[in-house]
Lab assay of single mutants.
Amino acid sequence: MATVKFKYKGEEKEVDISKIKKVWRVGKMISFTYDEGGGKTGRGAVSEKDAPKELLQMLEKQ
């Protein structure tokens, strides 16, 4: 499965596409929420050019 690499609050993070719950576009950025486990929801964003094609496909399906 594909992963998304991004920075959040200065920390490098990587999340599996299957854990992503919601995806939306903000200008040229793709924002998303994902399941961190333990009932927590994380947030992240990547630029449109750095987003994996699976993430862009999720955006188109909504």
Rank of each mutant, 00 (worst) to 15 (best):
F6E: 00
F6V: 02
I20N: 00
K13C: 11
M29L: 07
M1L: 05
V15T: 09
I17R: 03
S47T: 13
D50G: 06
K61D: 12
T3E: 02
R25E: 06
P52R: 04
D16V: 08
W24E: 15
R43S: 10
V23P: 04
S31V: 04
S18H: 10
T3F: 13
K61E: 09
K5S: 04
W24H: 05
T41N: 14
G39Y: 14
E36S: 02
E48D: 05
T41D: 14
E54D: 10
A45W: 04
D50K: 13
R25N: 15
I17T: 09
E48L: 02
G42M: 06
K19E: 13
F32L: 12
K19S: 12
W24A: 06
K13A: 03
A2Y: 04
Y8H: 08
G10C: 15
E48A: 07
I30H: 01
T33D: 14
F6L: 02
D35P: 09
L59P: 02
G44W: 02
V4Q: 00
V4A: 01
G42E: 15
G42I: 08
E48S: 04
S47E: 13
S31K: 14
V23E: 01
M1I: 12
V15W: 00
K40G: 09
V46K: 05
A51C: 07
S47V: 05
G37V: 11
K19I: 11
G27N: 12
A51R: 02
V46Y: 01
V4T: 01
D16Q: 15
A2C: 13
Q62A: 06
A51E: 03
G39E: 05
R25A: 15
Q57K: 08
E48F: 03
G27A: 04
W24R: 03
K21C: 15
V4K: 00
R25K: 05
L56A: 07
G44E: 01
G42S: 12
R25F: 09
D50V: 07
D50A: 13
G10K: 03
R43L: 03
E36T: 11
R25P: 11
G39W: 10
V26P: 06
V15G: 01
K61V: 06
A2N: 06
Q62R: 00
K22V: 08
L55N: 00
W24I: 05
K7G: 10
L59C: 06
V23R: 01
I30K: 00
G27M: 09
I17L: 12
S31C: 04
A51P: 03
K19Y: 09
K53Q: 13
G42L: 08
E48K: 08
T33F: 08
F32P: 00
F6T: 01
E48V: 11
E12V: 06
K13H: 09
K22D: 14
V46F: 02
I30C: 04
A51F: 01
S47F: 04
E11H: 14
G10E: 12
Q62N: 08
I30D: 00
D35V: 05
T33I: 12
L59E: 08
G27R: 05
G37S: 09
S47D: 10
D16H: 06
T3M: 05
Q62H: 13
F6H: 02
G37R: 07
K40M: 15
I30G: 00
V23T: 06
R43N: 06
L55M: 05
A51M: 03
Q62Y: 03
I30E: 00
V26I: 04
E54P: 10
Y8F: 09
T33K: 12
K13T: 07
D35Q: 04
L55D: 00
A45M: 11
E54V: 11
W24P: 00
D50T: 08
G44Y: 06
E12T: 08
K28N: 10
M1T: 15
R25V: 06
L55R: 00
D16T: 07
I17M: 10
R25H: 06
K49Y: 11
E12L: 09
T33V: 08
R43V: 06
A45R: 08
A45D: 15
K19Q: 14
K21V: 14
K22N: 15
D50F: 07
D35Y: 05
L56P: 01
G38Y: 10
L55H: 00
S47C: 09
V15N: 00
K40F: 14
G38L: 10
G44D: 01
S18L: 12
Y34N: 01
G38T: 09
I17N: 02
M1K: 09
G37H: 10
K9V: 02
E11I: 07
K5R: 03
K40P: 12
K61F: 04
D50Y: 08
T33E: 11
D16A: 10
W24V: 12
E48Q: 05
K40I: 15
R43E: 15
K49N: 12
E36K: 03
K9I: 02
K5H: 11
F32E: 00
S31L: 08
I17P: 02
Y8P: 01
V46Q: 05
K7H: 14
D35S: 12
T33M: 12
G10I: 01
K40S: 13
K19G: 04
V4S: 00
I20S: 01
K61M: 12
L55Y: 00
F6D: 01
S31Y: 03
K40A: 09
K53H: 14
I17F: 06
K61G: 12
E54W: 06
E48G: 05
G27Y: 09
T3P: 03
G37Y: 11
S47I: 14
G44M: 02
K7L: 13
K21L: 14
E14A: 05
K9S: 05
F32R: 00
T41Q: 11
I30Q: 00
G10F: 03
K22Y: 09
S31H: 14
E14Y: 04
K28C: 14
Y8A: 11
K49G: 13
A2P: 10
A2E: 14
V4Y: 00
L56T: 06
E54Y: 12
K5I: 05
G27T: 08
K9H: 13
K9R: 08
G10T: 03
G38C: 15
K49H: 11
K21F: 13
D35I: 15
S31W: 08
L56H: 06
W24F: 09
E12A: 07
E14L: 03
I20L: 13
R43C: 14
K28F: 04
I17G: 03
K21M: 14
K19N: 13
F32A: 03
D50H: 03
L56C: 04
D35M: 07
E14Q: 08
I30A: 05
V46G: 01
G42T: 14
Q62F: 12
K5L: 08
Q57G: 06
K13Q: 10
V26D: 09
I30W: 01
K61W: 13
K13P: 00
E36A: 05
D16L: 13
